[in-house]
Amino acid sequence: MAATREKADGAEGAGGERRPGRGRLVSGPGMLLVWLYGVMVVGAVSRSAVQISTDFDRAPLAYSLSAVAGVVYGFITYSLVRGGESARRAALACCVAELAGVLLVGTWTLVEPSAFPDATVWSDFGMGYLFIPVLLPLSAIRWLRGAGAAETASV
């Protein structure tokens, strides 16, 4: 979480003065998204780091998937903080991939629980995380599409 904040400061410093609405993705609801994604980064990365380093053989698939989820969350957080059109597109693509991942892994864990001796971040559609993993990409996609529309309108 601290790293997220440093990046936020860095992005603002590099961008010079604050230009609202011009490719800035962390204004308004975007700030909430950065916070939630930041929490998920810390959650997924630290969880998989502990599990992989201490007990990898117990559920290699589940722990690897958690690590992948952490990396995806990290990239989306970084893109949101960086802002700009290409970051917006990249984040949008990742959110779609994230949503697909949540749906796939969520279904997979329900259909074939034996493949998962331990839970992943995305098990049962993220039930262990209050369904945030499935709600987050939906809100992020909506926000990023909206940000794109505003950008096109202001040009």
Partner: peptide
């Protein structure tokens, strides 16, 4: 951390 982020976002979203 959430508090610092709300300092950067001086709207209801903070």
């Amino acid at each position: 951390v959430a508090g610092f982020m709300s300092l950067a976002e001086r709207t209801r979203w903070g």
